[in-house]
Design a binder for these strands. Sequence first.
DNA 1: GCGAGTGTATGGTTTTCATCGAACACTCGG
DNA 2: CCGAGTGTTCGATGAAAACCATACACTCGC
Lengths: 110, 110
Amino acid sequence: MTTGSHRAAPEHTHPDDVPVLTALAALADPVRLTLVRELAGSAAWTRSCGSFDVPVGKAALSHHFAVLRGAGLVEQRDEGPRRVNRLRRPEFDARFPGLLDLVLRDDEPS
Amino acid sequence: MTTGSHRAAPEHTHPDDVPVLTALAALADPVRLTLVRELAGSAAWTRSCGSFDVPVGKAALSHHFAVLRGAGLVEQRDEGPRRVNRLRRPEFDARFPGLLDLVLRDDEPS
DNA sequence: GCGAGTGTATGGTTTTCATCGAACACTCGG
DNA sequence: CCGAGTGTTCGATGAAAACCATACACTCGC
């Protein structure tokens, strides 16, 4: 019986269980949008939560990741002391085709 | 000199001038989502502002339409005493391909 | 020119949400 | 076993946004 004391694994929501409104609300925030974009530019499982360049404290950051998880946008795994992330591109694309493409490739209007 | 006293024409924003964040925020609200969907199901210029089935008062409704205009989602024209609406599908699709399709054809997860 | 119908603007209330500081949990290397 | 590093949770604060009720503006039929 390896009852090993582990940290509680983060709760994940599959994109298939996510209402559109939740997905849109998750992406309609400048900080989270930055996280998603930066995450899309890195290989899976290579970025820990603290490695993102956003102007908010740890607490807020943690909250934002919880929202992204709840929207099926991000998957997290504990790796030693840090929590590493992966953008759930294929699953999310299957549920909301084109949405990620939109927010990723967008250039702001001149 | 026909200085005719007309009502101020509503200010419109073309989708090309709309940042993604604004578009997402506009759609990430249950009332506005209903408006867009109901509007998509009707012919252009056939729906006045008051003809939508949403559980808010006139003032809030007026505000929501202002947000939709500002996001390049809706065009309005004064027709007698009422203000009729049109969903700017082609323009908005050109700026954000697939986004409207997504919010329109979506079925909530079981 | 009234009065009904329709929409906007204003002012104020309530709710929601992003944020922070501080305290706590876990992992790992000395 | 301690201390540094990392992330979550809690409580509180502040800002943004949705909302309502009221008052105002415009159009039209009578």
